[in-house]
Structure formats: structure tokens, C-alpha cells
Design a binder for these strands. Structure first.
Lengths: 240, 240
DNA sequence: CGGAGCGTTGATAGAAGTCAATTGACGTGG
DNA sequence: CCACGTCAATTGACTTCTATCAACGCTCCG
């Protein structure tokens, strides 16, 4: 978390001038620690600030009436967790810290001000929410049309590329503190099936996953199984 | 499509002043007809204008390598189909007209100009993409944690409320020109299963669906089966 | 030591997919 | 006016995938 991860995230997609970099650095005022398992934002809340992840993992989730849970997104360093609450309110889902996290709360007043004072930065923030939506669409594709193994493979491909963008990978491995229960809520599968499918991925020598550490052994194989194409992440610097 | 449907969409969520209304009306310049079955935007394209739906139905879809298809969103009058292409490019999915449509192409130059000249309108456009994302999240919840019947019920609840917002419903019924094949691509189910599940919904007297005309017979039952809560559509006028 | 959480396994049930065929509505060409 | 092709909806038989239920082992920690 040394280099500002939001800066890494944005500069992978567009050029930032030095004033914009300054504004982004100043945006991170006080940082806060959040303990694993704690809710960062609650469904129904009407936040007056948005939470920027500086380090750790978080998940957006929604509880069902029958006790089930659905995870619709995983967030990592550099992501805004609830930027949409700037314009949408109340929150229609909650966000939970999956690991100990470092976050920074950015007042909506400041963000709204950017839409007047720094339209280009405001557009880039808008862009981050558009990329969230693009990821949702891929998850929908995976949920509707891929097998359980393909779905997990897609998730791993996506998270690997995203982590790499904010310099949170080493070679082909990365830290991913997800339990199989959490993964099952994200993939829309049962824990038992997650377990067996992970074994399948391991036996095929596609991945290693031990103690929260994932290693990708066969990127092409994984990508192929997932029909993964990173275009939707828009990892190309261009004027936006 | 007589009253500007974008105006209906937006004014259901925030107050618009008269200048803003004028800008929105002028945004609709030339209208175009698109024939059912035609692609409106193609994956890989780098549009320099975004398509506003004035009348009809369209779907965002993505083709898989095995010939499968996934529909990640249905769009109706008042929706921007590819507003995200303003900041994300190239298109990571295509859009097809499900019925004959009337659309208006709005140049990106004009939309980018709004981010400088009319920040509030720009924020409202941003909001429309945030609502798209919120719908994606609900679809993910439905795909991952609801039964086939619940998933279809959720879809019908959502589309009903959205159509109502832009005055495209009459009492409890509305026009919905979706084939069962298209519905299966949207729900991530097979056509056979869609067919049987629709029969189930009909036998339970929840809906009637004949010749592209859907009638909701038991809203509470449908909503309950779908765990539908319209909060995520943000149908409350408030400053944004 | 004992419980809690997590990963794992086996057995079984149920949901949804696949394959194949039929029906009815509609449009077109002869 | 009828034969024919096409498309959408429907049905039956069968298979495959995934969920559920129940248990067990392991590790961590109070």
C-alpha cells in the first residue's frame, strides 16, 4: 500500500497530470483499519462518505430471506467500495471486510466538488463504477453459461489481473484470503461443490491454493476454461 | 414515446430544472428506426456516440466460444444502451434490438461537454449507469441464489417496475417481445426449462404471458417468490 | 481440554440440461 | 388455394450437474 493504489488503478487506464495526482493523494486523509469480518457499510445506510480500499479484501453482499447470502463483488486495494452511494441511496447491499483492511473515507462533499472543479477526475471516478458494472456482466456470463470450474477459473483470472494492476501479485501467485464458504456465496454454488471443483482445478495442475495463497500454474489453461478476455477491465491508458 | 422517456426516467429520480429539461430534449436530435433482430452496437466497436432508446426493447449480449449466448441486460425506452462506451472502449459486448426500436444517437462530444457545462446532468447520466450496475447485482443474486422460478419472477418484477416508470404499462400488463430462447439466454437456463418454469408460474396463477403480452395476476406472490425489493432502482426523487 | 471454524469426504436427492420429436402459427412460392 | 419451410412453443425420456445431509479430521485458541 505504499504507492497510492487508486493512482495505480487510474493511471493504468488514463494519463494523470501532476495536479490530478496531488488531488488524489490529498483525497486520502485519515486512514482507518477495519478488522476482518466487520461490516464496512450496511444495507439501508445512507452514507455521506465513500470508502476507498487501500489494503486488504472486501466483498459486497446481500442477505436473502432464507438465510442465504450472495456476494456480488470482491474488492481490493485501489477500489472504491461504495462510490455509487454518492448518487444512489440508500445502500441496496452491505460490504464486509474479508481480511483486515486499511481504508480511507472520502466525504461525498469532496467528491461532488470534483464534478465541478475537476471534470476529468470525476469522469475517471465514473469510469471506476463502469468497470464495476463490466465485471458484474462477466460474472453474469460466468454464472449463466459456464460450468462450476469455468466460473471459478474466471474469477481467479479476473482477480489475478486486477491484483497485478495494483502491484499485489508476485510472479504467478497472490494472497487471497477467501474461505470456501465465501467463495461459494460469490459463485452461487454450494461449499461442497466448491471444494470438489477446486480439487479438480488442482488435479488438472491449473492452480495451487493453500492457506490463502493462490498460485496460477497454467495461465493459458485457466483462461481457456474461463473464456477469459481482459478487455472488459480496460487496462489500456487512453484519454477518457 | 411521446413524452421524452429519458425525462421520465430521470425525473423519477431527481428534480430537473427547466434548462435541464431543454438540454435533454435537444439531446434527442434525429431519431432512427432499428429493425428487430439487428445489432445496434457490436462488441469490439469504439463508438463515438451513445444510443438512447426511445421506444422498443433491446438486449446486451455476449457470445461464447461454444456458440452459447449470454444476455446481461434488457433495455427499454429511456435507457442509454451504451453510455459506458463514453469512458470504456472498445465495447466488451454487443446490443441487439429485440423488437423494432426507435433510438437517438447522442454524440460523445456532446455528453463529454455536459461534464463541464452541466455537472448535475452529468451526474444524473452517471447515475443511470450506476442503476445498470445495481440491476446487474440483482441478476447475480437471482442467478446464484434463486430457483429458476424465482429468477424469472424477479425478472418480471423488475421489468414491470421499470416499464411503469416510463409509462409503458397498462394496469398490470405490458408488452414484452421476448422469445423463450432470449429469456433463457438472459436467465442462464435452457429453453426447455424456461418453458416448464413459465408453465409453473402460469399454473400458480402468478402471471399470464401470451403473444408477447404479460399480465401480472398476483403481484405479491410474484414479488415474494423473487424476493423482489425495488429499492435498488432508486425510484425516489431526491437531490443527486 | 473442548469448542469453533474450515476443509474434506461419501451417499443420496433434486434441479436443470440435453436430445429428439411434435404442434401450431405464419409467410411464401407455385 | 395449397404445399412447404421456418420459427416458436411444447412435450417426453433420459442424463448430468449441483445441492443437501451427515460425518470426520485438522488447526487454532480460550
Amino acid at each position: 500500500m505504499d504507492p497510492n493504489p487508486l493512482l495505480l488503478y487510474l493511471s493504468a487506464r488514463d494519463r494523470l497530470d501532476s495536479e490530478e495526482r496531488t488531488v488524489l493523494d490529498q483525497m486520502i486523509g485519515q486512514t482507518q483499519k477495519v478488522i476482518a469480518g466487520a461490516d464496512i457499510v450496511r444495507e439501508g445506510a445512507e452514507p455521506i462518505e465513500s470508502c476507498l480500499m487501500l489494503d486488504g479484501f472486501a466483498a459486497r453482499y446481500h442477505l436473502l430471506t432464507d438465510g442465504g447470502r450472495n456476494i456480488s463483488a470482491i474488492h481490493i486495494a485501489g477500489d472504491f467500495l461504495d462510490l455509487h452511494s454518492l448518487l444512489l441511496s440508500p445502500m441496496d447491499h452491505s460490504v464486509i471486510a474479508l481480511s483486515d483492511c486499511t481504508v480511507s473515507m472520502v466525504p461525498h462533499k469532496l467528491l461532488l466538488g470534483l464534478t465541478h472543479s475537476h471534470p476529468h477526475l470525476a469522469r475517471l471516478l465514473w469510469m471506476t463504477t463502469l468497470i464495476d458494472a463490466a465485471m458484474h456482466r462477466r460474472w453474469l456470463m460466468a454464472a449463466g453459461r459456464l460450468s462450476a470450474a469455468g466460473r471459478i477459473a474466471h474469477f481467479l483470472c479476473e482477480i489475478y489481473v486486477r491484483l497485478k494492476t495494483v502491484q499485489q501479485t508476485e510472479d504467478q501467485h497472490f494472497w487471497l484470503p477467501l474461505t470456501q464458504l465465501q467463495l461459494s456465496d460469490a459463485m452461487g454454488l454450494s461449499t461442497v461443490h466448491i471444494n470438489r471443483t477446486l480439487q479438480e482445478l488442482r488435479h488438472r495442475n491449473l492452480i495451487r491454493w493453500e492457506a490463502g495463497r493462490v498460485e496460477i500454474l497454467n495461465w493459458d489453461g485457466l483462461q481457456n476454461m474461463a473464456q477469459f478476455d481482459a478487455t472488459y477491465l480496460n487496462l489500456e491508458p487512453r484519454p477518457r
